[in-house]
Amino acid sequence: MSERNRDFGKYGARGVKGHEAVARRLDSLAGYFTTPVTAPRGLLARLHYLTRTDHARAAARAAGLTVTPRTLKAWLDGGRKPSRKNLERVEVAYRAVRRQNVARYLLGRLNAQGRGTRVEIHPLNQSQVSRPRQRVVEYRSLNVRHWDRLVEAWAADDDQALDEAWVEQIVDLGSQWGQYEYVTNVGFAA
């Protein structure tokens, strides 16, 4: 695509890829546990979430948490503490399972029976760019009616698919959609 930025930040512009901002917003809507996994309370909350149903246990195994049931029971009882590597696996598995569980709910809310959701796009930060090199980029909003590909890519943690789905949506901004490939923030509610 000819509108894609090739040397973003070369002259001092700051921002993040739009799809990364969308993923952060979806993560905040997913409502993860705030207590860190390193705290006993946070670990127990995640382990209970990952072991409460057969579906959750299968999804946790698929996400990389492959400890024996005996080890899992020892962690839950407080008899043993997981290693740092296993704590990371618990966190990754928890986030993957949470995304899968919340995706259908978010999709229904964001699609809003075909009405879609209004998305606010805050342009990149050009405060460090010299005056002659600054673009005229302004705050924009658009109504996204089809969230299926965005939410599906987010739930699968597929960065490339999320980027393609995001670009497919911002093309609706018109001929200068490439100016919104990098942003400071993307806001929407569900």
Score class of each variant (00 low, 15 high):
75 W>T: 01
62 A>L: 12
39 A>N: 10
41 R>A: 15
60 A>I: 03
42 G>N: 06
57 R>G: 01
43 L>Q: 14
59 A>M: 14
71 T>N: 06
60 A>C: 06
55 H>F: 08
21 A>G: 09
14 R>P: 00
39 A>C: 05
16 V>H: 12
26 L>I: 04
22 V>W: 02
63 A>N: 02
50 L>S: 08
27 D>R: 09
16 V>Y: 06
69 P>T: 02
48 H>G: 04
32 Y>K: 05
27 D>G: 11
64 G>H: 06
56 A>E: 12
69 P>H: 03
64 G>D: 01
59 A>E: 14
31 G>W: 03
60 A>K: 02
82 P>R: 09
65 L>G: 01
17 K>F: 07
61 R>G: 01
38 T>V: 13
24 R>Q: 12
30 A>H: 01
20 E>P: 00
82 P>E: 06
68 T>P: 08
47 L>N: 08
72 L>E: 13
31 G>A: 05
51 T>L: 15
13 A>I: 03
76 L>E: 12
13 A>W: 05
43 L>I: 03
42 G>D: 01
14 R>H: 05
63 A>T: 03
27 D>L: 09
52 R>T: 08
24 R>Y: 07
60 A>M: 05
19 H>S: 14
18 G>C: 13
67 V>F: 05
13 A>Y: 00
44 L>Y: 03
13 A>E: 15
49 Y>E: 11
70 R>Q: 15
45 A>H: 09
44 L>I: 13
29 L>R: 06
56 A>W: 00
38 T>F: 04
51 T>K: 08
50 L>N: 08
44 L>C: 00
30 A>E: 04
79 G>F: 04
24 R>L: 14
44 L>T: 12
17 K>M: 12
59 A>Q: 13
81 K>H: 02
41 R>C: 00
53 T>D: 08
53 T>F: 09
43 L>P: 06
54 D>Y: 01
14 R>C: 03
76 L>H: 00
69 P>Q: 07
40 P>W: 10
51 T>V: 04
46 R>P: 09
33 F>D: 13
53 T>V: 07
71 T>H: 12
43 L>F: 07
23 A>I: 07
37 V>M: 04
36 P>R: 07
33 F>A: 13
63 A>G: 06
21 A>R: 13
57 R>Y: 00
52 R>V: 11
65 L>H: 10
70 R>I: 10
22 V>L: 14
25 R>K: 15
56 A>F: 02
59 A>I: 00
58 A>G: 14
52 R>K: 13
14 R>S: 09
